[in-house]
Simulated scan of single mutants.
Amino acid sequence: MAYDALVARLDDGLDPVRFGAFPDGSVDDYYRLRDGESTVTSRPSFADAILAGRDSFTLEHVVTEAGGQAVNAARQAAALGDDTVLAGHLDHPLFEFDFETVSMGDPARVRVCLFDADDVMFVEESADLADWSAADLRAALDDVDAFLERDALCCTNWASVPGLGTALRTVAASDPDGGVFCLDPGPLSAGQANGLLGALTPLGDAYDVVVSVNDDEARRLAAAAGGDGRPTDPKALEAVRTAANAAGVVVHGADAAVASTAEGRVSVPTLDVSRGLTETGAGDRFSAGLARSLAAGWAWDLAVAMGNACAAHYVAGAGTGGVDDLRAHVDANRS
């Protein structure tokens, strides 16, 4: 079992890798939605209230946190002891970490409406992020080439960063001596899925590209690659992997994480945990655990299990897990 092997690996401790994440960042305000004296706990109940004519709700503030996909991934890698550099949009006092950061402008503002499942996010975009380009990354870093040649890179939020397509082609043209390049695109539209596959194709000649997606994102990419759109269908995932010139495509779903790789198909069940405050940010922690483990030379099943462990620890409300946290968590929840 992959989780038995993961516990044994975590018992031995981890050798750090050089990890980088870019380019987003957000200030995330979490709220509960109230309808009079009652808390609205689901999307259907919210929709029912609106259809019934309710036109006024109350937002009850819960917490404000540093967010953004790259930020979440960097926090996970740092918690595992990796040498971490975050290049994001971090111009806000909330972004103070004990690892290296550089800022490229103002973060987005995200209001997360907490439901029992499937939180809803309302995003106020950052103009700096909307205008971002590879030139901003180069200007922010003392040595952008060294950053691009880190053992593992997490590049995130394709859906909200229009300049990423051109930037990835610029990176590929520079022919870096790349390691693992994990692309976690965020909530793709159908049109964005085609652009993403086109931008990843040249990048695969410089990196071991890994595409990390949820079910909805996988469905859109599969449709763009000519598949039937079922998110974990073997032929559909392999079509995405081929179109993206990727080493692997991983779908982190509710019941299992499924990967299509050059070595074959891998499936690792998720850890069964009770949900804490939110699942928002769990996928980013999955991507970080996956990418840093592949960069450390781990087999695919073990790396996918590590991603699942990072996500499950966060979903359970235990925060971003370090090595000892994850070992205990997996040991307690493996079947």
Rank of each mutant, 00 (worst) to 15 (best):
P162V: 03
L90T: 07
S126H: 04
T101W: 10
S56V: 14
E125C: 11
A78Y: 00
G53L: 08
P162H: 08
A52N: 10
A78M: 00
E149Q: 07
L51W: 09
L129G: 05
E65N: 11
V102T: 13
D91H: 05
D106L: 14
H89E: 00
L94A: 15
F46S: 09
R138F: 05
D106H: 14
V110S: 15
V112R: 02
G88A: 03
F97I: 09
A73N: 07
N72G: 05
T84G: 04
H61I: 05
L153G: 02
R109E: 13
A140L: 00
G105C: 02
R111P: 09
L90V: 00
T156G: 10
H92S: 12
S103Q: 05
V123N: 11
L59M: 13
T156I: 07
S160M: 15
L137C: 10
A73W: 08
R150F: 06
R75F: 00
T156W: 07
L59P: 13
L153H: 01
C154F: 10
W132Y: 08
D136I: 01
A140M: 00
C155T: 14
F115L: 06
F95M: 00
Q69L: 14
H89I: 03
S133Y: 07
A117P: 02
R109T: 14
A74P: 09
L141I: 00
S56Q: 14
A139P: 01
T101I: 06
D82W: 03
R150T: 02
S56A: 15
F57I: 04
A140I: 10
R138I: 14
A130G: 10
D142C: 03
R109M: 13
